[in-house]
Design a protein around this nucleic acid. Structure first.
Ligand code: FES
Ligand code: FES
Lengths: 123, 123
DNA sequence: CCGAATCTGGACTATTATGGTCGGGTTTAA
DNA sequence: TTAAACCCGACCATAATAGTCCAGATTCGG
């Protein structure tokens, strides 16, 4: 619960590696996979996703962790509580529910934490 | 990724229910399970854990969400990044790693978010 | 231009974590 | 005193994650 997935972790390592190398440097997925003992195929996929979302095109130092997570996981990552999202008809207090709103606010706070950290702070 | 587990969700619903009922009220796990269409056996286990950690003995209004999560999930919920915790010997930059520390700080920020929300704010 | 290395991307397997169930023995309260 | 509720370990089903395999396309150094 509340751990970064391996994919995100690998993505962070790769991007940080590229950021540390300075601009203009060329890095192959193979090279990074070897250096950090990451399964190549998996890292390759991660980097494909990052590339498709134009993450790799940006200045790494300014990249936010949140953007990387979203690119890799694919979803806007919104619903911290499932009762609301999935089957509101099951919940007898759904209409008067006082759990949802505080948790949505909590969710926003968490999102902000990820928005606040940039790769630049890791190099 | 970054969703509360069902167990925690059920725990929150149950505790909020008890908080809303006012002090002195008696609530059985069965009753709560029926009212919210939660599988009884599962809710029962959750409440057992809460009871063992003396969560149910405290004033619900002052309970922090963090305490509930810890009681149910059992772990202090510390390592947001796995590279460090699991196999540091695999990572060639482990000694000079600049990823760990920022993410630990991020972890602390997330913990704080859960520490900041109390059941009282949900009733 | 050629060959080797690398990338692409789908299909597939393995491993875990999660959510849920069953059942037998124990307590509790009408 | 007996039904209902609780305790708790074992168990099963499903889904999410992590990792693998491979065949075709691309890129790049020479
Ligand atoms: S909608 Fe069901 S607990 Fe909030
Ligand atoms: S210890 Fe490996 S990336 Fe930080």
């Amino acid at each position: 619960m509340f751990q970064l997935s391996k994919k995100v972790e690998y993505g962070l390592i790769a991007i940080r590696h590229m950021a540390a190398g300075g601009p203009g440097q060329i890095h192959t997925a193979k090279e990074i996979a070897d250096r950090y003992h990451i399964p190549y195929e998996l890292l390759a996929k991660v980097m494909q996703k990052l590339a498709k979302n134009y993450i790799l095109a940006r200045n790494p130092a300014e990249l936010k962790v949140a953007a990387i997570i979203n690119a890799i996981e694919g979803k806007p990552n919104v619903t911290i509580i499932q009762c609301e999202a999935e089957s509101p008809e099951n919940c007898i207090i759904h209409d008067t529910c006082t759990i949802k709103n505080p948790l949505v606010k909590l969710q926003l706070n968490i999102n902000r934490v990820f928005e606040d950290l940039s790769i630049g702070e890791m190099v």
